[in-house]
Design a protein around this nucleic acid. Structure first.
Length: 714
DNA sequence: GGGGTCTTAAACAGAT
DNA sequence: TATCTGTTTAAGACCC
């Protein structure tokens, strides 16, 4: 145990820390080490180009602002203090210029200038794109117009009121500072309020799949951005630029995102935020009185990147006021946090919309009255008759394969009604393994690879299945123990922590299951999968008992939803049980999905009999509309691009369903098909493919090579 | 309630 | 000696 703990420290890439920064940093490290290329490279490059363009625009605006500011200085005769300007770092000049120039600038320009101060071009590019989506820019413009007019008036008054330039400059600066401070304080109040909301939001959604942000600014990038920002200011502090009075330090006046923008940012995703801002302020004060603070938990300061430990709440408050006071550093941190929250909210809004559409879609489907709920030639009409008409098997967890915000894996038992609650069972909560039995592990991993890689969610597979998958994915179908470890950590964020636990479990499973064979190799001992042994367990117990079915499903990876009738059908048809081995191969293609779909169709029947032995379904089936229809199938009834009537030649298995490839593949199988039978003839350890012979009416056969993802007429 | 499966924890031994 | 690897046992949870 102690040894394993040590292993955890050395093999988890330092991700044992639960704070976001550490975790994300670890993820990034792992990603960079992973040989798997990112699928977002093209999109990322495109985004980078767009961001660079935006950056150029921002820089041009900065130059214009500088030029205009210089011209205005000459015209007004105002003497700027060269001393003060020289003091400011080059990067801060645009900010000061932007704030001090009594010229009206657009909110976009303002924001660009503001952010130019503390963020790198890449960071700025990201932020710029997000800022451009804001809607209350006109209000901001008006706000700043007024502020700048006041500043300008004050400047002129002070300018004419004094004849001594040095004194004039100092007076101007003081006025500027006062005005800026006033504006900043107003903005900061809103900023902190919103930032606090953002923190609460993040804490409340601690298990939010971070991968969901892959489409936008991924957390890792934000964390990196955050680190850079923090690092920048740490350097500034170390260089002594901070005078110790951060709250009043205007030497490097860093503007705060305008409050109107801040409000808008939340209003875009939640219209209640703005209206409740004051309430939250007051509630926050109440919380303070009870020694509860959103930025304080378990004696640790929750300010991003801080994590300072305090013995009591008062110390924390003191720390908060001193270390996180109103200054450019804090505002920059707030901006970053704001972006994080905004991204989360945007992503959440997208996913909510998607979820709503999916639920609506599935609700319509599930409530559609089936013309005839029972297919022909069903083996178990008695069991099927238990299914009420129209009570098609509910789809447990609908998700789109393109955005694995949550895994495409049904983690809960079939809910009668799909509710958001039923969909929120994602998380490290240990699920009963009957769920896992139903997982076709390879397709699921394929569909949810990004999700599992980036989200600390326990994969719904058994250790044995995962080990087998790891070994089968290897080129030589053999891995050392350490390589298996690496596969686990590479493929699943969940296994990047608690290494002592799961590594022990891996070793335990390797030793326990006969299907894992240890082979002495040149480079040491490697583990292989004895597929026959892996499959043998199933026929050994084939006796029609539930245990048999469960074992079959476990071995197949299709779970207990696979009805015994279909197993019997497979046995009769001499369909090798290693069919799924090819499915588990990297060459999985859409036709393998067809096989799964076929099985899922059978599963549907199994589910419809009300048996408790069907708690889960393939995640793919969850994405497809599957329904039982009476033959002949009316093409008009089909909503999907592909209408396939299948009638297994087995007398024990005959069902009809709609089929729609999850990739929209319409030409996979002709809809005139009346009979087809899976005839896998390949060996699973060969090319990893699967040959299927599909017999069509009229003696036409289609041979499908899953390796080549092609089909040819014979 | 019993059997089976799976996870987790732990102890132990041999190899490196 | 420390760590890794592999085996084994036990307990508990869950499902049928």
């Amino acid at each position: 145990m102690m040894q394993e703990a040590g292993t955890a420290e050395t093999t988890s890439n330092g991700t044992a820390k639960q704070n976001g920064v550490a975790v994300e940093g670890g993820l990034r490290d792992i990603r960079s080490k992973s040989a798997t290329p990112s699928s977002d490279i093209t999109a990322a490059n495109l985004m980078t180009l767009q961001q660079q363009q935006a950056l150029q625009v921002a820089r041009q605006l900065l130059l214009k602002q500088q030029q205009q500011q210089q011209q205005q200085q000459q015209q007004s005769g105002a003497i700027k203090s060269t001393k003060s300007s020289e003091k400011q770092p080059a990067l801060q000049v645009p900010v000061s210029v932007a704030m001090m120039t009594p010229q009206v600038i657009t909110p976009q320009q303002m924001q660009q200038i503001l952010q130019q101060q503390v963020l790198s071009p890449q960071q700025l590019q990201i932020l710029l794109q997000q800022q451009q989506a804001l809607m209350l820019q006109q209000q901001l413009q008006d706000f700043y117009k007024k502020q700048q007019e006041q500043l300008h008036l004050q400047l002129l008054q002070q300018h004419h009121g004094s004849k001594q330039q040095s004194k004039e400059v100092s007076t101007q600066q003081l006025a500027f500072q006062q005005q800026l401070l006033q504006v900043q304080q107003l903005q900061q109040q809103h900023l902190l309020s919103l930032q606090r909301q953002g923190l609460l939001s993040i804490q409340a959604n601690h298990n939010l799949p971070l991968h969901s942000l892959a489409q936008g600014v991924i957390p890792a990038e934000l964390q990196q951005l955050w680190k850079e920002v923090t690092g920048t200011h740490v350097k500034e502090e170390n260089s002594g630029s901070n005078n110790g009075h951060r709250g009043l330090d205007l030497s490097s006046a860093s503007p705060v995102p305008p409050k109107s923008i801040l409000l808008n940012q939340h209003a875009t995703s939640n219209g209640q935020y703005g209206s409740h801002a004051l309430k939250r302020e007051s509630s926050a004060l109440d919380e303070h009185t009870h020694h509860s603070h959103p930025l304080y938990a378990h004696g640790v300061c929750k300010w991003p990147g801080c994590e300072a430990v305090f013995e009591d709440f008062q110390s924390f408050l003191k720390h908060l006021n001193n270390e996180h006071a109103l200054d450019d550093r804090s505002t920059a941190q707030c901006r970053v946090q704001m972006q994080v929250v905004q991204q989360l909210e945007l992503q959440l809004a997208k996913d909510k919309e998607r979820l709503q559409a999916m639920m609506t879609h599935l609700h319509v489907k599930s409530t559609e009255p089936k013309p005839t709920p029972q297919p022909l030639n069903l083996v178990s009409n008695a069991t099927l008759s238990k299914t009420a008409p129209g009570a098609s098997p509910p789809l447990s967890l609908p998700q789109t394969p393109t955005t694995p915000t949550t895994p495409l894996t049904p983690l809960s038992h079939h809910p009668t009604v799909i509710t958001p609650t039923s969909l929120h069972s994602v998380g490290p909560i240990r699920r009963r393994y009957s769920d896992k039995y139903s997982m076709p592990i390879s397709p699921d991993i394929g569909q949810n690879k990004e999700f599992y890689m980036n989200t600390d969610v326990r994969p719904p597979f058994t250790y044995a299945s995962l080990i087998r998958q790891a070994i089968l994915e290897s080129p030589e179908r053999q891995l050392t123990l350490n390589e298996i470890y690496n596969w686990f950590t590479r493929m699943f964020a969940y296994f990047r922590r608690n290494a002592a636990t799961w590594k022990n479990a891996v070793r335990h499973n390797l030793s326990l299951h006969k299907c894992f064979v240890r082979v002495e190799n040149v480079k040491g001992a490697v583990w292989t999968v004895d597929e026959l042994e892996f499959q043998k367990r199933r026929p050994q117990k084939i006796s029609g008992s539930p245990a048999l079915v469960k074992n079959i499903q476990t071995s197949l990876g299709y779970g207990p939803v696979l009805p015994a009738t279909f197993q019997a059908s497979m046995a009769e048809n001499s369909i090798p049980l290693y069919t799924t081995a090819s499915i588990g191969s990297p060459t999985l293609n859409s036709l393998a999905n067809a096989i799964r779909e076929e099985m899922n169709g059978a599963m549907d029947h199994g589910n419809s009999n009300g048996s408790d032995s069907s708690p889960g379904r393939s995640p793919l089936s969850a994405m497809h509309h599957i329904s039982v229809k009476e033959e002949p199938l009316d093409p008009e009834e089909h909503e999907g691009p592909l209408s396939l009537v299948t009638a297994n030649h087995s007398p024990d298995f005959d069902h009809h369903r709609d089929y729609e490839d999850d990739h929209g593949n319409e030409d996979m199988l002709p809809d005139q098909a009346r009979n087809f039978y899976l005839h896998p003839v390949k060996e699973p350890f060969g090319t990893g493919g699967l040959l299927l012979h599909i017999a069509w009416p009229g003696g036409i056969e289609t041979r499908v090579d899953t390796c080549r993802e092609s089909s040819t007429l014979i």
